[in-house]
């Protein structure tokens, strides 16, 4: 329970840290690492503007997305429970995508379509990595491969470059943001927090479950920032190659854990 609250409290900090780091590496000063908290506080206080075309799905989605994402915290402890975690994330995604379609705007539909496109191909990668984690007990190389595959999947799932770009303001290139385009005020705050929690959960799985060392968390966050800085966003159809690469890594990690490579 404590863990649950801590993760929700610290999730925005991780986002703030990555943003700050990216800006510093670009030789800018950048916002404070607490900026996500200020943003959330502001959104929470604001009124909501809702499209007249929407239905109750649009209103209920922020709560469902947050609930499903946050309850996934309870399923990060063993490789077996990760299966349930993946299903919970797809619960959250299902409603987010519906909300994207609900406002009758083409931007939302575009984001929804792309989100489903990317995530449905990511799904087998996640499961293969989980299988590798499950099988391997002491194989370093298998863990490393699984961690890389999961890392690549995590970049895609948390809408980072090279798959998506959180900083973009151009609707045509958005994936995750396009689905949130019609949201404002409190609903937007809840959805942003949910996205940050999801990001932290992914980082924790990589650090905690694969390397058994939560102290690695900042290192992985730094890696995320470095990847975001050094790559450009990919064209949507090249993302498939990216996912296929992650898939190959996952398959190799499974093979390695089956043969029991000791290295």
């Amino acid at each position: 329970m404590l863990r649950f609250i801590l993760i929700i409290l610290f999730a925005p900090l991780v986002s703030g840290f990555i943003t700050r780091l990216k800006n510093n590496l670009r030789l800018r000063r950048g916002p404070s690492i607490f900026q996500p908290y200020y943003n959330l506080a502001k959104y929470f206080r604001k009124d909501e503007v809702v499209s007249q075309e929407t239905s109750w799905i649009f209103r209920i989605t922020p709560y469902l997305v947050f609930t499903a994402t946050a309850s996934a915290v309870f399923f990060t402890t063993s490789p077996g429970s990760l299966i349930t975690l993946i299903f919970l994330f797809s619960f959250a995604r299902f409603f987010l995508v519906l909300a994207g379609l609900d406002a009758a705007s083409s931007f939302g539909g575009m984001g929804s379509s792309r989100e489903m496109f990317i995530s449905s191909f990511i799904e087998p990668v996640l499961f293969l990595s989980v299988a590798a984690l499950w099988l391997s007990t002491n194989s370093m190389i298998a863990s490393a491969l699984a961690a890389t595959a999961l890392f690549l999947a995590a970049l895609a799932e948390t809408s980072r470059i090279p798959v998506d770009n959180q900083e973009t303001h151009l609707e045509l290139t958005m994936v995750h943001e396009a689905m949130l385009l019609e949201y404002s005020g409190r609903s937007l705050a809840i959805l942003e927090l949910a996205a940050q929690v999801k990001q932290l959960i992914f980082l924790m799985i990589i650090a905690g479950l694969i390397f058994n060392n939560l102290a690695l968390l900042p290192v992985i966050a730094v890696l995320v920032a470095l990847v975001e800085l050094s790559l450009a966003k990919m064209r949507l159809f090249r993302v498939v190659d990216y996912i296929a690469f992650a898939g190959v890594l996952a398959v190799f990690s499974v093979v390695m854990s089956i043969v029991g490579a000791i290295i």
């Binding site: 993946i86 995604r93 519906l98 009758a104 489903m116 449905s120 191909f121 990511i122 087998p124």
Partner: peptide, 22 residues
């Protein structure tokens, strides 16, 4: 797993296009 992902995409489409928006 891939089937599950694609099936979700399929039914999001079916429900989202048929029942939501205008």
């Amino acid at each position: 797993a891939l089937t599950g992902g694609l099936a979700a995409a399929c039914f999001v489409k079916a429900f989202g296009i048929a029942c939501l928006a205008k």
